[in-house]
Amino acid sequence: MSRILLDRVSRWYGNVVAVNDVSFEVGPGITGLLGPNGAGKTTLLHLMAGFLVPSAGTVRLDETPTWRHPEIYGRIGFVPEREAVHGFLTGRRFVAAAARLHRLPDAAAAAERAIAMVDLRDAAGRAIGGYSKGMRQRIKVAAALVHDPPVLILDEPFNGMDPRQRLHMMNLLRRMAADGRTILFSSHILEEVERLSDRVLVVVAGRLAASGDFRRIRRLMTDRPHSFTVRSSDDRALGRELLAEPDVSSVELRDGVLTVRTGDYGALTRSIAPAAQRAGVSLLELRPADESLESVFSYLVRR
């Protein structure tokens, strides 16, 4: 069990502030790092992996600062975004080289195990230079987890993978997280993050815009009405009744779907059942309409 801790971390390049006063903690489980291009995702990951020195603040792995402490790599596996690998090595030698640099007692066996985990045994004897994008991505992951690290940091790990490989990698990460590992990955594809992570960190323009469970984050956005879609035995009657509720800002009935907007998420969930009862309508379904990560994300990015 290891944690990454950022305390008031900033990083600037000359006049450009890439990361601005960010504090958070990443613990066991899968955390998704989300942000538009250029938001500072890679800078943040490189700070955490000790490849960049913070301009201000501290980045630690448990008690050890990550900058200029190579010994932390015994506990971190890092998958960079850049595609460049030692293309002249075979996949097997590449992963075995990583194992040897970690001074693993049986490097060859560790390499085989890691290669099997990413499902690349068939191609392990070929030079990486000839690999497809998705295969490169997987051999990089194999090299990062060859020493079975408690912390895994992945920068855009699903880039270039086909849907099947993507699924396989997601399952692998889930399994590793279930073993109590701390996994942090960045992505700009919302669906991936939504499906995989317990927690998200949203960075926008170098600042941490939100963190936590994204459904919770949505509920915190009180300055924007929440929408629900409702199915009931009589949508029109229920809509009329709901309009009288103080927290309901609008009701819309279009194409047979009743959409209710409210400024107070909790109030509506409490008041809708009595309202249905008063209208003599049976409630069939109540569903948050915009509680997808996408709506959260676009809200945070536009704020």
Binding site: A49, P70, E71, Y73, G74, I76, F78, A84, H86, L101
Partner: peptide, 15 residues
């Protein structure tokens, strides 16, 4: 320049 140095640096190896 190519970025492959990361596979040497991300190891607990004294520089």
């Amino acid at each position: 320049e190519e970025g492959t140095i990361v596979y040497l640096l991300a190891r607990p190896v004294p520089r």
